[in-house]
Structure formats: structure tokens, C-alpha cells
């Protein structure tokens, strides 16, 4: 009953070419997921809310990048606009709406986010239309793919992995080494104390939300050349990045990175071995992690 194709899976594991190709595509999925999930986990860690509309930020990033690219033809500018535009939306969303339901129960927070998922999807449908769109690969990357150990690796994939890894390093170092990072960690730990010390916590909350939105927007912009764009594209990404944060542990950046890579690899190799059950595999993995370690692989017990 279960659609199994183990021959394809073992066959792939035996050939280095297939191994490289599948691993890179797993890394691509994983890195995009990481950028979305790390924003989610950061917002949760500091604000203690789960931004259920985070997928919409990913979607906005992709659409902003596409439009900028069509008008300017500059890929770098498209990335920048995708990230910056989404950061602004994140800031407005947090200051204008989410900040009103921090004290309320989870139900209210879910409802506000649910409302915005509906609104954002329809806004995108209004502006860009309901049909599938594609940005197209920028000219600079329309070159022959690299061959590593016989496997095909498009150069754009390397850029994508590089940008995502750079974001991970900058974020990780920034939180640990810089003053702002310290303030953010302090606000996550004890917001009352931080505000008593004369630091504007509202500003920090807004900033963290904008940062999370920016990362999701960057992921969307990076994904725009390789994925098709459609209203509602953010939702499956949201679910997957939530699985990532559950596996990695809410609030942990390293956890998000490891979780995202695991999910990426499960997706790319799972699509060979279990073509119809790839998503099921992810859920299965999540359930196993949850049952054995309810706080996730790198999560700490939340007091």
C-alpha cells in the first residue's frame, strides 16, 4: 500500500553522482527552510509568540524580488528589495497588530495571524493575480552547471547556500558578540528588567519582528528564481519551517539550522525512496523527535 521504491533509493546511495545531486537539492530546501525557520524561532524566543503568518513574509519576499527584478533587471537589488520590503511589513504588522495581543491567550494570537494569512494572500492575488508566476533565472547565473563527482550542481545553488550560511553566521555572532544581541537576549529572558533599565522593549520587539520578516523575505527572494510564485505559497513553507523548529527546538538557532538540513535531506532523498510519502516522512520524523524529546533536539526546558 505504501508507495515504496527502495531500489531507486539504494541505487542512488550507491552512485556518487546521484548522491551529490540529491544532497545539493536537499541543502537548497534546507537552507531556504532555515531562513524562514530561524525568523520564526527568533520571534518565538524573544516575543514568545508563534508568528503563524510568517509564511506570508516569505511570499512577499518572493513577489517583491520578482517585481524589482522585472523593473530594474538587477538581481542584487531584487534581493535587497525582497528583504527590506518584508522587514517593513513585519515591523508594521508587529507594532500595529501583534503587539495588541501579547497578553491575550494563544487563541487570540492564532486568530490575528489567521486573519492576516487570509488578508495577505488576497492582497497578493489582487496585486499580482492568482496565476502561477516565475521570475526566471538571472542572466549572471545562466551558465553551465558545475559537475562535482559526476553530480550536477547549478552555480545559483552555491550562491543560495552561501547567502543562507552567511546569514546564519552573522545572526549567531551578532546575538552573542554585539551589544544589540545582548540586549535582545536579555529581553528574551526578562523583558521587565530590560525595560526598567531604560531600554525601549517595544522597539526591540518591533526590531526582532522586522529581522525575522527580513530573513523570511530574503528566503522568498532567493527562492523566486527556482520556484514558481503563487498566492498561498507561504503556507507549506510555514508548516515545514514549523516542523523544523519543533525538531530543532523552539528558540534555538543552531537547532533551526540542523533541523532544516535534516528536513531538506529527508525531502530530497525521501522523494526517491517514497515518492508519494515524502511529506509523511517529515511528519513521522517530527513525531519521533517529539515523543523522545518534547523540547526538540536543541531546545531547553521552557520555564
Amino acid at each position: 500500500m505504501l508507495p515504496l521504491d527502495l531500489d531507486a533509493l539504494t541505487g542512488c546511495l550507491a552512485s556518487s553522482a546521484c548522491l551529490v545531486t540529491q544532497t545539493t537539492s536537499g541543502f537548497i530546501i534546507g537552507m531556504l527552510l532555515f531562513l524562514v525557520a530561524v525568523g520564526l524561532t527568533l520571534i518565538f524566543g524573544v516575543l514568545k509568540v508563534v508568528n503563524f503568518s510568517h509564511g506570508a513574509f516569505y511570499m512577499f519576499g518572493a513577489y517583491f524580488a520578482m517585481t524589482t527584478y522585472q523593473f530594474s533587471g538587477s538581481f542584487a537589488l531584487a534581493m535587497l528589495c525582497g528583504a527590506a520590503g518584508t522587514a517593513i511589513i513585519g515591523l508594521i504588522f508587529e507594532r500595529g497588530f501583534m503587539s495588541r495581543v501579547y497578553g491575550a491567550d494563544v487563541l487570540m494570537q492564532l486568530l490575528v495571524c489567521y486573519a492576516f494569512v487570509l488578508i495577505f494572500d488576497d492582497v497578493v492575488r489582487m496585486i499580482w493575480g492568482p496565476e502561477f508566476k516565475s521570475m526566471g533565472m538571472p542572466a549572471a547565473f545562466q551558465v553551465a552547471p558545475l559537475f562535482i563527482a559526476g553530480g550536477v550542481v547549478p552555480p545559483y545553488y552555491l550562491l543560495l547556500i552561501g547567502v543562507a550560511l552567511a546569514a546564519a553566521v552573522v545572526l549567531g555572532l551578532g546575538l552573542v558578540r554585539t551589544r544589540i544581541g545582548k540586549v535582545i537576549r536579555a529581553a528574551a529572558h526578562n523583558p521587565g528588567m530590560v525595560s526598567a533599565l531604560g531600554i525601549n522593549t517595544g522597539l526591540i520587539y518591533g526590531g526582532v519582528f522586522a529581522l525575522g520578516g527580513m530573513l523570511a523575505g530574503l528566503a522568498g527572494a532567493l527562492a523566486a528564481p527556482v520556484r514558481s510564485l503563487t498566492p498561498g505559497m507561504g503556507f507549506s513553507v510555514l508548516i515545514e519551517s514549523f516542523i523544523v523548529t519543533v525538531i530543532g527546538g523552539m528558540g534555538s538557532i543552531l537547532g533551526a539550522l540542523i533541523g532544516a538540513l535534516l528536513i531538506g535531506l529527508i525531502r530530497s532523498f525521501g522523494s526517491l525512496g517514497f515518492p508519494l510519502f515524502t511529506e509523511g516522512l517529515m511528519y513521522l520524523f517530527m513525531v519521533i523527535v517529539l515523543v523522545s524529546r518534547p523540547t526538540g533536539l536543541f531546545g531547553r526546558e521552557v520555564a
Partner: peptide
Amino acid sequence: GLVLGIVILFFAI
């Protein structure tokens, strides 16, 4: 979805 979302916001916030 847009209209429904606004109504939900009205109730929730």
C-alpha cells in the same frame, strides 16, 4: 479572504 480577515481582526483585536 480579505473581507473575512478584516472581520476576524475586528473581533480579535
